[in-house]
């Protein structure tokens, strides 16, 4: 005797939207699960007509992608939600931003174009505040990293220690100057850039297994003995489609915007 959920099936998704949001300030210490709970409650507080999955335990239709790790700030997080009623994206952005705690801020919402969100998120740019009193050794360190063919690293996972290469995924690794746009973006995410740090920027391709900023730092230590006095603070500056020639990451919502303009 199989049980069936009572009542009619939930209303279908009539509109998909993609949301660009941040995780910054103190909230960088939140985990992805913390964000998820917070976001789903914000949807309810804002009375957003979110669509639900069918079944005994209906779940709101939200797809998350590439969440920044706990402790890492981000200017560039993305997700997609399915709505049961059509919404104006500008109004929706305002309502959601007000419903979310400060630090989880909605930057922009666009109607989703064709294709999967995860597919356009090809790479990330990370800003790393690397505590050091010896800038030159940091430069030598990442140069050695870039010169290497392969940088074997390991990470503890649920299934034990996993070994993989951290070099191939790294497109660029270099110093960032004070006052540059990357510097300022990082500053907006964490309040103020720490003194006594070499400020690095890494552009890293999204691969499987994922190479995270931690893995790059681990690799730096392995290859050049470069050890920070305390764990570096990390901020995700951008993620999106990667131009492999210039290492420039473009806005992942550009394609969705083009779809809208071309059809309207």
């Amino acid at each position: 005797m199989a049980r069936k959920p009572e009542g009619p099936p939930p209303p279908p998704v009539v509109q998909k939207v993609r949301i660009h949001y941040t995780k910054r300030g103190r909230l960088r210490f939140s985990s992805h699960r913390d964000f998820q709970r917070s976001f789903e409650r914000a949807l309810r507080r804002g009375n957003v007509p979110i669509a639900f999955s069918a079944g005994f335990s209906p779940h709101p239709k939200v797809s998350y992608a590439n969440a920044a790790p706990t402790g890492v700030a981000s200017q560039a997080e993305y997700l997609e939600v399915g709505l049961a009623k059509r919404c104006d994206v500008i109004a929706l952005a305002k309502v959601l931003d007000e419903s979310l705690p400060v630090g989880f801020d909605v930057v922009e919402i666009v109607e989703a174009g064709p294709g999967a969100l995860a597919d356009v998120l090809e790479a990330s740019a990370w800003l790393i505040e690397f505590p050091t009193d010896d800038q030159a050794s940091v430069v030598a360190g990442f140069e050695a990293f870039l010169a290497a063919e392969e940088v074997p690293v390991q990470r503890m996972t649920k299934n034990g220690i996993r070994h993989f290469d951290a070099r191939q995924a790294v497109v660029t690794l270099g110093l960032v100057g004070a006052g540059s746009s990357d510097w300022e973006a990082g500053q907006r995410a964490v309040g103020s850039i720490l003194d006594g740090c070499a400020i690095l920027k890494a552009v890293v391709r999204h691969t499987t297994p994922a190479v995270r900023p931690d893995d790059v730092l681990y690799g730096l230590r392995e290859i050049s003995g470069l050890t920070p006095s305390s764990p570096p603070r990390v901020t995700r500056l951008a993620q999106g489609p990667l131009d492999p020639q210039t290492a420039v990451i473009s806005d992942p919502l550009d394609r969705d915007r083009k779809v809208i303009t071309s059809t309207s």
Binding site: Q15, N47, V48, P49, K85, C87, D88, V89, A91, L92
Partner: peptide, 9 residues
């Protein structure tokens, strides 16, 4: 509260 008023597309 009818969200459609505020959020209507």
């Amino acid at each position: 509260v009818d969200s459609s008023a505020v959020l209507a597309g």
